[in-house]
């Protein structure tokens, strides 16, 4: 596995590079410049960087105004303060206006760590996904965050880019060209498909190796775009492997698991088990310990895979 980096680092690098390539790129921040890695851009392009202070709702509105005047704004903060705090501004000013606003957020999920539940967004994918016009992307690692940042600048319309705080192994190097809405097949399998997003992609890869040792052949899919979700991939995998496990650093309600369940139940009903937080807030603690406590480890995925397989109608 590759370098250990956080998603936000890939984002910061891509934004910096795009700043030189496209003068329409602007960035906004709400008093968290270094945390969200927008400070590289801010130092290089001070005239295209707007510090809004601790005022996320104002930041989203301002970003929308810039977008409606032809710029490509990246508004940055933590996930809770965008998706939750500025939810209605995102709905009206960005989505309903079809404004070309990119909302790049870090500190999503339990791995936010010691700051605790108040800062750990576990329901943001659900609320962002429910917004008309919105594209929702959850990159697996720094490399994919880099690719997704560049791709989202090319897409015309609002994008929610969910980045992690904690460095994780880079797994997506060499996956081929990144395309929003096209899931990436990490490995083929015939017994079960593990569909993951964010930091859970790496955990799903490790889980598939653990399953292989028990003679279970699991496919792994990196579902980096939660909306529009890659229905074709989900249906194909459901048909090929007969059961599915989803894994996300988010509530099992309304996120990746919800999105996959919707596709599966309407098109190709097969057993599905969702790995994620179980309708609960998080808490303070070291990221890895939290993932363990809240059931977001490779072992949990392995266990879920076995459960899903045991429910198949025709057992192999």
């Amino acid at each position: 596995m590759g370098k250990i980096l956080s998603g936000r680092e890939g984002f910061g690098q891509a934004l910096l590079e795009m700043g030189s390539e496209n003068e329409k790129i602007v960035a906004l921040c709400a008093d968290l410049a270094e945390s969200v890695k927008v400070h590289f851009f801010a130092e290089k392009f001070p005239e295209r960087y707007f510090q809004i202070g601790i005022a996320e709702q104002d930041m989203i509105g301002t970003a929308a105004g810039l977008a409606l005047s032809g710029y490509i704004p990246f508004a940055t903060t933590y996930a809770v303060f965008a998706a939750n705090r500025a939810n209605e501004q995102i709905r009206l000013a960005a989505c309903y206006n079809q404004a070309n606003v990119k909302i790049a957020v870090s500190h999503a999920g339990l791995t936010t760590g010691e700051d605790g539940a108040t800062h750990q967004a576990l329901e943001d994918i659900a609320s962002m996904r429910a917004m008309p016009e919105m594209t929702v992307i959850v990159p697996a690692d720094a490399n994919e965050a880099y690719e997704a940042t560049r791709a989202s600048a090319e897409l015309d319309g609002p994008v929610y880019l969910r980045l992690g705080r904690t460095p994780v192994p880079t797994v997506t190097k060499g996956y081929g060209k990144y395309k929003i809405g096209k899931a990436r097949k990490v490995s083929d399998g015939k017994d079960v498909t593990l569909i993951a997003c964010g930091i859970m992609v790496e955990k799903a890869i490790v889980a598939s190796e653990m399953l292989a040792q028990e003679g279970i052949n699991a496919a792994v899919v990196d579902m980096h775009t939660i909306k529009p979700i890659d229905e074709e991939m989900i249906i194909k995998q459901a048909e090929e492997t007969g059961c599915i496990v989803t894994a996300e650093e988010h509530s099992i309600i309304g996120g990746l698991g919800g999105a996959v369940a919707e596709v599966v139940s309407e098109n190709c009903p097969v057993p599905l088990v969702r790995v994620g937080t179980k309708d609960t807030f998080g808490e303070s603690g070291p990221p890895e310990e939290l993932l363990k406590k809240y059931g977001l480890t490779s072992e949990n995925i392995v266990e879920a895979a076995k459960r899903a397989m045991s429910r198949k109608k025709v057992n192999v």
Binding site: E114, D115, G116, E283, S284, G285
Partner: peptide, 13 residues
């Protein structure tokens, strides 16, 4: 404070 299973969360709970 700030440890797992604590009542003294990183921010007040």
């Amino acid at each position: 404070f700030r440890k797992i299973d604590s009542r003294l969360q990183g921010h007040p709970s």
